[in-house]
Design a protein around this nucleic acid. Structure first.
Length: 643
RNA sequence: GCUCAUAUAGCUCAGCGGUAGAGCACUUGCUUGGUAAGUAAGAGGUCACCGGUUCAAGUCCGGUUAUGAGCUCCA
């Protein structure tokens, strides 16, 4: 049979030859490095026979695929075996690979602590040292279940039982031990191929990801080809930690949280400056795109929430308020608004609307409160009190597509100015439980999809992930350590307008129900600022920096000149602070650099005599001497460019 | 909400049964120094909160609250 290699060359091998035979045939170096093969795009064990003409590539640890196989073997064959050696009776659940590493879920008889990880690592090293070969056997469903039943591996049994496969269950063995694990493979042919690894953390995880199920213990780890790669990865994690907005928020004095108001931000002057600048920026953009800004109440009677359906479906997330009985002369229950939409419909409903009024775009920087589960809070990214750059578009079904297109343009435009050149779009389609006819869903899903396609943007489809009231687009940004955060959103809604009796008079003179589109670009100011800080590592662009320039005197003789320069900057609308402290200039430079001030102007006798300034930019070790006049001109221009 | 962990000075952390510690920051003195830490002294803590064990509790145990990492859920 003919085997075609990735470089196009063809080798003639006997049918039934294995990947290892092929590697041997190519050369001794590869024969040693080979860990698996890809046959016609499907990964196979090196020991699997190849029976017909195929395109085959040999996988080694030099490829991402190879690393993944190694991580897989490490978790399923080494970590799992080590844990069972040390803690007999521990049940195995699942152990997949993830980005840069792997995890394994166990049910321990007694809980273990993070200190145990070191012990497990040592046991793993011992197992790897045995350099055992790994072999696999195929079992029928019945036999496979019997194997795991005898070992009391209830989770494995369940996995096999629930599988629709009837035979060829792959069980992997090591040659020096009776350890066995079910696996779809492929695995390393031998433990000698394992590179460098480290167990990183211990956490709970629900069986099958369902919070109704039992919580298992998950051990996370990372693995690389060698120590060098492992250390580089660990170092990159440390670097990412330095960008954490919670850390930078403290260092730059942007905001804080405290026990009395969990999940609610205390904005400091510096942080609030960023917030306001961002709000002004968005306000201008919205106005350019035909939105009218409104403002609606924070505390609203439960009657409205009952009408909107929130009281039924969302109450566990709402802060409910009651008026002190002693003082209230009316008894009513209110809720802090968790969303702005019902209030926006109230504004829409004032006065009769004609089809000529549509699309009608309302915007509100709406302050919302949601009682989030305690474990979900995360710095600015997930809070209980936040402000959305919310907006609702009332339009006809026919207008959905053009509104989608217009919105994505607005969003891309804003994201680009704020330093995000790329973002992920997720299109979520109809869920099983939903309102509205299939025809309307068809139309809405098509409208959303066709708008993204016309803009030639990549997107991923999340089938069945839409809201019960309509399909949606989510716009996702990534934080310093790779966690994804949904920021922008665009959701068509066929439900709420009807519930809250929104109408318009159509061309036909009859009343119709408009479609309502919920949309936000930033999502929430809080989250977006968190992502923004991490994306810039705190080094915000000039226009967004809370303090744009620090004017620092080198000796006290030039304090007067420094004051003059600061005043001139302020007159140009530049936010500056004056540092006349009795400290050396290098001390001042260090301090202002660490708080990420974009520009430091160090002023000494030379500058005073020539009416100039020395400009030092954040991130640069150089400084440039220019005339004060030129500096004022340059910085004013820079300040007016908002990107 | 669940699992595990953590909570000591403004910040970062050490101390883990026997009179509260360090570095930085802060205040004051000396120093006027040219681009990432000049120098000396001083001040600063009900060791998150509530209870228990003990002659004695930051230190051991239990609970509460908050925070962190995951899981679940979401902007």
């Amino acid at each position: 049979m003919n085997i075609t290699l990735p470089d196009g060359s063809v080798r003639d091998l006997k049918p039934g030859s294995t990947g290892q035979d092929l590697a041997n045939d190519i050369g001794p170096g590869l024969a040693k490095a080979a860990i698996a093969v890809s046959v016609n795009g499907i990964q196979k064990d090196l020991s699997d026979p190849i029976n017909e003409d195929s395109e085959v590539s040999i996988i080694t640890l030099d490829s991402e695929d190879g690393l993944e196989i190694m991580r897989h073997t490490l978790t399923a064959q080494v970590l799992a075996r080590a844990v069972q050696n040390l803690y007999p009776g521990t049940k195995l659940a699942i152990g997949p690979t993830i980005k840069d590493g792997f995890y394994y879920d166990f049910e321990f008889k007694k809980p273990i602590s993070p200190d145990d990880l070191e012990r497990i690592e040592k046991e793993m090293a011992k197992i790897i040292n045995s350099k055992s070969s790994i072999t696999k056997k195929l079992y029928s469903k019945k036999d496979a279940i019997a194997v795991f039943k005898s070992k009391k591996e209830t989770y494995k049994e369940l996995i096999i039982e629930e599988s629709d496969q009837s035979d060829d269950f792959q069980l992997y063995y090591q040659d020096d031990n009776e350890f066995v694990d079910l696996c779809r493979g492929p695995h390393l042919p031998s433990l000698k191929h394992i590179g460098s690894f480290k167990l990183t953390k211990l956490a709970g995880a629900y069986w099958k990801g369902d919070s109704k199920n039992k919580m298992l213990t998950r051990i996370y780890g990372t693995a690389w080809k060698n120590d060098k790669d492992l250390n580089a990865y660990l170092h990159s994690l440390e670097e990412a930690e330095k960008r954490d907005h919670r850390k930078l928020g403290k260092e730059m004095s942007l905001f804080h949280f405290q026990e009395e108001a969990p999940g609610m931000v205390f904005w400091h002057p510096n942080g609030w400056t960023i917030y306001r600048l961002l709000e002004d920026f968005i306000r201008e953009k919205l106005s350019d795109y035909g939105y009218q800004e409104i403002r609606t109440p924070q505390v609203v009677d439960r009657k409205l929430w009952e009408a909107s359906g929130h009281w039924d479906k969302y109450r566990e997330n709402m802060f409910i308020t009651e008026i002190d009985e002693e003082h209230a002369n009316e008894k009513r229950t209110n809720a802090l608004k968790p969303m702005n939409c019902p209030c926006h419909v109230q504004v829409y409903n004032q006065g009769l609307k004609s089809y000529r009024d549509l699309p009608l775009r309302f915007a509100e920087f709406g302050s919302c409160h949601r009682y989030e589960a305690s474990g979900t809070m995360h710095g600015l990214m997930r809070v209980r009190g936040f402000t959305q750059d919310d907006g609702h578009i009332f339009c006809t079904e026919e207008q959905i597509e053009s509104e989608t297109k217009l919105f994505i343009e607005l969003l891309s435009n804003i994201y680009k100015d704020l330093g995000f050149d790329s973002f992920d779009i997720k299109l979520s389609t109809r869920p099983e439980v939903r309102v509205g006819s299939d025809e309307v869903w068809d139309k809405a899903e098509q409208a959303l999809e066709s708008a993204i396609k016309k803009l030639d943007l990549p997107y991923t489809l999340e089938e069945g992930d839409g809201a019960f009231y309509g399909p949606k687009l989510d716009f996702v940004l990534t934080d310093a350590i790779g966690r994804e955060w949904q920021c922008g959103t665009f959701q068509a809604d066929f439900n709420l307008p009807e519930r809250l009796e929104a109408e318009y008079v159509g061309e036909d003179g009859k009343k119709h129900i408009p479609v309502m589109i919920h949309r936000a670009v930033l999502g929430s100011f809080e989250r977006f600022i968190g992502v923004l800080i991490e994306n810039y590592s705190g080094k915000l662009p000039f226009w967004l920096a809370p303090v744009q320039v620090v004017v620092a005197s080198i000796t006290s003789d030039v304090d007067d000149y420094a004051e003059k320069v600061a005043l001139a900057l302020e007159e140009k609308g530049i936010r500056c602070s004056l540092d006349l402290r009795n400290e050396k200039i290098s001390y001042k430079v260090r301090e202002h650099s660490s708080t990420k001030t974009p520009v430091i102007m160090a002023l000494g006798k030379r500058e005073q005599e020539s009416n100039s300034v020395s400009v030092r930019r954040i991130g640069s070790n150089n400084n440039e001497s220019i005339s004060l006049e030129q500096a004022l001109k340059d910085l004013s221009i820079e300040n007016s460019k908002r990107h």
